[in-house]
Structures are given as structure tokens and as C-alpha cells.
Design a protein around this nucleic acid. Sequence first.
DNA 1: ATCAATTGCGTTATGCTATAACGTGTGCGA
DNA 2: TCGCACACGTTATAGCATAACGCAATTGAT
Lengths: 131, 131
Amino acid sequence: MGMPQLTRNQSLVLGALSHSEGPMSAYTILDKLRDQGVRAPLQVYRALDKLLEYGLVHRLESINAFVACTCPHEHEHDHGVTAFTICEGCGQVTEFHDEAIEQRLAVLVRGQSFKTEKTTIEIRGHCKSCG
Amino acid sequence: MGMPQLTRNQSLVLGALSHSEGPMSAYTILDKLRDQGVRAPLQVYRALDKLLEYGLVHRLESINAFVACTCPHEHEHDHGVTAFTICEGCGQVTEFHDEAIEQRLAVLVRGQSFKTEKTTIEIRGHCKSCG
DNA sequence: ATCAATTGCGTTATGCTATAACGTGTGCGA
DNA sequence: TCGCACACGTTATAGCATAACGCAATTGAT
């Protein structure tokens, strides 16, 4: 369950996401990588699955898109919940972590005897520049 | 921006959701309502759009599905953030609200000079029964 | 009363997102 | 060297959502 060398497709996908200003859909990634020999959606989705598993990429559930993690090193020792602000003007995504929210959620969920596997926190709106 | 009488399609869709154990996709709702004359996805999606606007229904972004709001009366005076636990075993969805989380998020977002329009908090895992 | 604007309806067609199912190739340990 | 695990590539299909058209009913200002 470590993080092996990335394969060619995984590197291409991570590269595309890292060099992008904002989040991209799997099909947008596909388009960007056609010149480099990526032809089918599955090639992208399979790479994304691994990158998600390694914590190098996040999926934004509310917009069906993906972003490169902004602090991949920290994810090696699995920081808990990741939250995002997503600007609907310029697409800028900001990732953040907060202990207080995490603990409060843990308390609430515990009260339901619910066992958390994946937590999604996404805030859509407009960033400073987009007013 | 009030809440007028529901139209036939809106009532049918809300009824289907209310009588369901768990969340349903738009296409599942469509299937349940074919006998009652609903034939096309758009009829369902248009009804859902209005029901979401009125606060009678929530969209679960992480699973592309919809649930009836469990406290529609409270939404008349727009309670802020709604959070959900979603059991991947039995599909049970529990809606909850928490002032502390809401305020903490407000602070963090303010720090970015970000203006929130819609907040999504969804926790997937397993409920008490599904261990 | 009438016309215009608004809103919902119904239909067809289409687009976007994601996965199923199949077979190939490659590396590596028993 | 056999068998397993894993990544790859391709075709096909499933699942989610909206565009664009025209019709009908309602409302409301003139």
C-alpha cells in the first residue's frame, strides 16, 4: 500500500493536472493528452484511480473534476479531512485542512454510531478576484 | 422567491422521494413514475430543480442522487449548511446541521476573502446497523 | 378584453461522465 | 518456467444531465 513509481499514464495525467490552473474533468485531461498517445477515457480513469489512492490527486465531487493535491508530502502520513473552496468564476480551487471541523464532525458522526470512510467538504462561490 | 403550489410533476417527484427508504437518482425516480405518466428525464430534472429551489429536496453530490428534506419547515427560514451521512451499505441518509461547523467554515472562508454560495458536506461510510 | 410575459409541459436529440468486458504484454517470485 | 499480479489498450455500453424546439395555461398591465 505504499507509493511505487508512477507509470507513464499516471505521470502524464498528474502532469496535466499539475500544470493546469484549475480542476479538469477526465475528458478534458484526455483531450490534453491525445498528442502524447492517450486515446481512451479508461486510460485516464485508471490513472486517476491510482493517483487518488496515492493521495496525489483529489476528486471534486460537486463538479465532477480532479485537481492535483497541493501538499502531497503531507498526505504520506494521512492527514484526515480535506476541504476545498471552488470559485465558479475562475475555477480556482483552494485546499485546506482544519482540526476543529474534523473533530466536530467526528463527534457528530460518533453520536450516530456511524463509521466514516470518506468525507467531502466543498464550498462553491466566488474568490476574492471574482468578487 | 416564495413557494407556490407544487405542480403535478413536482408532487409526483417529491412523493416518490418521500416514500423511498433512501436516496434515488433522477433515472430511478423516472422509472418509479412511468406508470403515472412521467416519460422523459427532463420532466424529472425540471421538477427536481424547483424542489431544490424550494428547499424540499437535497442533492447528494457525491453519489449523484436526491433525497427529500427531513425538515422542510425549518428551511423556510433558510438554515445554513446542511450535512449528510450516507451509508454505503443500506443507503440510509441522515441530515444534520451544526452551528459550530458552520461558523468555523465561515471564518476559514472569510480568511480567503471567499464568498460562499453553496456548501457541500457529505460523509460516506457505514451506519450503526451496517457496521 | 387583449396582448405580452412568464412558467410549466412534452418530445427529440445530444452531450458529458464513468465503467464493463475482453484480450495483450511484462515483470517477478515460487 | 510456470503462474500470478498488474498495467495496458480497445470496443462497447451504462448512467447522469442538458440543449433546443414548440405548445398550453396563467397572470397581469394596459
